[in-house]
């Protein structure tokens, strides 16, 4: 045991010191600006999401179909993620939809992802005898969309020793469901560069 004792003591002291140091480090939590410019890493971030959603909404509101003020019925389809980054494209389309809805110029029909929930609710009202027959949602009353929104996001990533460059391109299109014509399309580009050191 003897040869170890001094070493063990050193170890104990250093472990204790480490524990104390860890104990001293106090975390500070603060609220930040949810819409502030975020440049922590060059992965797809909150600022990119907000900029894209805002640019697309404003541009779409200027499209003739919407500006003509005849309250088009739109459904949001998938924005395809063509990058290898985990970009929540649903979060982007949700933001776009919320902004458009707030403008009061567009109405939204149930999209494919929410259809199951919609059907379930109609079925539930239909099947449940506790509901007032006069007011329950009936089958065959849903309104189909006149236009569909779809898009994609792609990226080009270049990396060298001390520099990483990411270029994102977000493209959104509005198609007329009846005649298949492209009514509106717009793009938003973002370039971000990280340099080390």
């Amino acid at each position: 045991m003897t040869p170890l004792t001094p070493l063990l003591r050193i170890a104990t002291v250093s472990v204790l010191a480490a524990a104390l140091l860890a104990g001293c480090a106090k975390d500070t939590v603060r609220y930040g600006d949810a819409r502030g410019v975020e440049t922590i890493t060059n992965e797809f971030g909150s600022t990119d999401l907000q900029m894209i959603a805002e640019a697309m909404t404003r541009s779409l509101l200027d499209a003739p179909v919407v500006a003509a003020n005849n309250l088009p019925i739109v459904t949001v389809q998938e924005v395809r993620n063509k990058t290898s980054e985990y970009i929540d494209t649903r979060a982007i389309t949700d933001s776009i939809r919320a902004e458009l809805q707030k403008s009061g110029r567009v109405r939204f029909a149930v999209d494919a992802a929410d259809m199951a929930n919609q059907k379930e609710e109609v079925d539930r009202q239909q099947d449940d005898e506790y509901y007032d027959r006069e007011q329950t949602a009936e089958k065959g009353r849903m309104v189909g969309a006149q236009y569909r929104l779809e898009g994609n996001i792609s990226s080009i990533v270049k990396q060298a020793k001390d520099i990483k460059d990411v270029y994102y391109k977000f493209n959104l299109q509005m198609w007329n469901v009846r005649d298949g014509l492209l009514e509106w399309t717009d793009e938003k580009e973002i370039r971000k560069t990280t340099t080390k050191g």
Binding site: E78, R80, N81, T83, S84, Y86, T89, R90
Partner: peptide, 23 residues
């Protein structure tokens, strides 16, 4: 990750998962 996102109806995230796996 891709499989779970796909099952949950999030193809945007699923695509990234499958693409990463391939890489």
């Amino acid at each position: 990750a891709g499989f779970v996102y796909e099952a949950l109806g999030e193809p945007g995230l699923a695509a990234a998962g499958y693409r990463q796996a391939i890489e």
